[in-house]
């Protein structure tokens, strides 16, 4: 076992921080480390928190983390902020809201940027969650802006997904229909003291009802797997509704365990992980092969001259791999 892994498992914060950096940077050796950590993971509850910018995610996460701490549980937080597509730089500001847990090392808070160009955000996040889990965190919260498929992929790896909706956000509720609704295990109307909160709660209720009617014959507000997303009203900065949120999360986790859905979820998560890694690695392998053959440009030149076409170029690249695999299967 590598020293870094041993240190992490022994509870050294610095080792955990370093491992997450290696995961983000995809430093040489990070794969072996994640492999080793994998068998020590699988005990934490993972909660995803998403919602539009300014919905109050960071503030809620801060309060929730401190509630877990009061109950004697340890917490890991991964907060994801977008990076600039131009410079790759980012200002990661979620930490500012972490006032309730300041100085408490048993809340391990890590800011990550989307590092747009690199892709693989969901892989990096999944691996970072594995590291926090292996470290022994009881609860892991993944916080991300709910915009774009990348973020949705990230947050849907959680056991429980909470979607924050700010009050009086008719347009946002419309937007939610487009994808986030399906992944929400519970809704949070934060800033519930503001005008329009009741209306938003009403809209959400209607939407959930509609969804459940459409998805099952029962039509009594339960969806096809027996869970109706509750709506929790919070005023996160004042700490109101935080306990209700925490118990709603617990209800969902209990439901997952009792219904056997947790096991299904874990299975499909691992399956997705295998597929993603396979795609990334196969892609890297073939990109290397393309480079070795002189890169994409000469091929494009020939396509422009109508000497060949994209399908033929790809078929030529894939062919050796195909026949090699075929031979092995037969052998």
């Amino acid at each position: 076992m590598s020293e870094l892994v041993a240190d992490l498992l022994a509870g050294e914060h610095r080792a955990l921080a370093r491992v997450i950096s290696m995961i983000e940077d995809r430093s040489p050796g990070y794969r072996e480390i994640v492999s080793e950590l994998h068998r020590h993971s699988g005990t934490a509850d993972v909660v995803g928190v998403t919602g539009s910018p300014g919905a109050g995610k960071s503030t809620l996460v801060d309060k929730v983390a401190s509630t877990y701490r009061d109950r004697g549980e340890t917490v890991g937080v991964i907060a994801i902020d977008p990076s600039s597509p131009f410079t790759g730089g980012a200002v990661l500001g979620d930490r500012i809201r972490m006032a309730s847990n300041a100085g408490d090392m048993d809340v391990f808070f890590r800011s990550m940027s989307t590092r747009g160009s690199l892709g693989g955000l969901s892989t990096a996040t999944t691996d970072a969650v594995t590291a926090l889990d292996a470290f022994g965190k009881d609860k892991i919260i993944v916080e991300t802006v709910g915009a774009g498929q990348n973020e949705i992929d990230v947050v849907r790896t959680a056991d429980t997904v909470a979607v924050l909706v700010p009050p009086d956000s008719g347009d946002d509720v419309q937007m939610l229909k487009a994808g986030i609704l399906e992944i929400a295990d519970l809704f949070v109307v934060n800033k519930a003291d503001l005008d329009g909160a009741d209306r938003t709660v009403g809209q959400l209720k209607e939407m959930i009802h509609h969804r459940t009617d459409a998805s099952g014959p029962e039509g009594h507000g339960t969806d096809d797997d027996g869970w109706t997303p509750p709506i929790v009203e919070t005023v996160a900065n004042a700490g109101e509704g935080v306990d209700a949120f925490v118990s709603a999360v617990q209800d969902h986790l209990d439901y997952l365990d009792e219904s056997g859905r947790r096991e299904e979820k874990v299975r499909s998560r691992y399956a997705a992980e295998v597929r993603t890694l396979l795609r990334e690695d196969a892609n890297a392998l073939l990109a290397e092969e393309l480079e070795a053959r002189g890169g994409v440009d000469p091929a494009v030149d020939r396509i422009l001259e109508h000497e060949t076409d994209p399908y033929t170029v790809v078929a030529d690249l894939i062919e050796p791999l195909e026949s090699c695999l075929e031979e092995r299967r037969q052998g």
Binding site: A17, V91, G93, R95, I96, A102, D104, M105, F109, S113
Partner: peptide, 21 residues
């Protein structure tokens, strides 16, 4: 990538942030 701490941090908060991040 810049993590900004916000105002009025105590030394131990800065340490916590520097170590974890």
């Amino acid at each position: 990538e810049v993590v900004y701490s916000g105002l009025h941090r105590a030394p131990e908060e800065v340490v916590q942030a520097a170590v974890q991040e």
